[in-house]
Amino acid sequence: MKIGCDIVAISRMEKIYQKHNVNFLNKFLNSKEQILIKNPATLAGFWAAKEAASKALGVGISKECGFFDLEISKDFKNAPYFNFSSKLLNSFKINSASLSISHDGGFAIAVVVMDLEA
């Protein structure tokens, strides 16, 4: 099992979005993910989630794991989960992953737990 965690100030993400608008979103979210963004807290949570997943893989956001290799979706109960690119699935042998996102006190935090083949 591998664990990744990331925390980000919601105000930081909001300022970047206000300055760059959709150009900022296009750098790390695909069109399906952008539809899920309802407010600055959600935006910050998605950023933290992708960072946390890349940390669980041990590489951070890099050539090995880009933002678009990690797609966030929601299930029927509105819980977030990842769809991984075939590149990640093959390179890291991801068996399963769990994602939790929370926001409070001006911060968004995400924790990712991954089961990787040995």
Rank of each mutant, 00 (worst) to 15 (best):
F28I: 13
K19E: 11
V111A: 02
S100R: 09
A108E: 06
L57P: 14
N78D: 13
S31L: 12
D104S: 10
F92R: 08
K55C: 03
L116Y: 03
V59Q: 11
L29E: 01
I94D: 03
A108Q: 05
H103M: 07
I109Q: 10
G66Y: 03
H103S: 09
S98F: 10
F107N: 06
S98M: 11
P40L: 11
A79N: 14
V113K: 03
K74Q: 13
F68D: 06
F24G: 06
A79W: 01
K63A: 09
A97C: 15
N78T: 05
A110W: 00
G106S: 05
L116V: 10
F24Q: 09
S102N: 12
K93A: 09
K93D: 13
D104N: 07
S98R: 14
A118H: 14
V112P: 00
I109D: 02
G4R: 01
N78S: 11
A110Q: 05
L88F: 04
S102T: 15
E14G: 01
K2L: 12
I16V: 15
S73G: 12
A108I: 03
K38S: 13
A48P: 04
K32A: 13
K63L: 13
S96W: 07
K2C: 08
S96G: 09
V113E: 06
F107W: 08
N26H: 08
F76Y: 14
A108S: 14
A56R: 02
A48K: 00
D104E: 14
N90L: 14
F68N: 11
L88H: 05
K2M: 11
N30V: 11
Q34L: 05
L116F: 08
L70C: 06
F76R: 15
V8S: 03
D75L: 10
L29P: 01
K87H: 14
R12L: 13
I3L: 15
I16H: 00
K27N: 08
I37C: 06
Q18L: 11
D6T: 03
S11G: 05
G105P: 03
N39W: 02
V59T: 15
I37R: 00
F28Q: 06
F84M: 10
I72V: 15
F82N: 04
K63Y: 09
K74M: 12
K93I: 15
I109N: 07
Y81W: 10
G4Q: 05
A56N: 00
D6H: 00
A97E: 05
N23W: 02
F68K: 10
Y17N: 06
G105H: 10
F76H: 12
L88C: 09
I37D: 07
E14K: 12
C65Q: 05
D115W: 06
